[in-house]
Amino acid sequence: MDLYITAARALRVDITHILQTHLHADFISGHMDLAQKTGARIYVAKSAKCTFDHVPLSEGDTIELEDMVLQVLETPGHAPEHLSYVVIDKSCSDSPVRVFVGDTLFVGDVGRPDLFPDIAQELAGQLYHSLHDELLQLPDYVEVYPVHRAGSLCGRAIGAKWTNTIGYERRFNAALQIKDKSAFV
């Protein structure tokens, strides 16, 4: 958490929003500490049914930050309550330029849907739709910002890079080459 505060100070910006993509299963999040230290509000999926003070988000909601607009996409699959955030930089255009995809899409991989074994099949089907009907609908030039890179159990063979583009993933990500939903699941 101190990393975020230190980085914000270095950039001379305030942390005003804490956006959660999902309820991480692989670690305890520091959102409560960060909210207390910064006064920022916590934004999380309405479907997560969080019991702490937060702003609930659903598909189509938007968050405005100066010149930027963040559009909320519901992208379940890796986790039932998963969100992605599409960034529009209005100082440039009204087109999306970046997307924070959490654990739905990685560089060279996609999120594992089997971390909740009881609903793994259902989540795998949702992941297919989240990838093909949500994220891959974005333009090729949109930059992708996942949570993890190589070494995380949240994927199978995640690449070493932190970021990529929708276009590169569309063309080279092996999981995205499986067009048939049943084969994907």
Binding site: L23, D26, I28, S29, C50, T51
Partner: peptide
């Protein structure tokens, strides 16, 4: 893939409740 480690079954719910600071 290796099975998810044991703590994976608990962390989501802890994060849902809001972990202790």
């Amino acid at each position: 893939m290796p099975p998810a480690p044991d703590h994976f079954s608990r962390c989501s719910d802890i994060n849902r409740r809001g972990p202790a600071r």
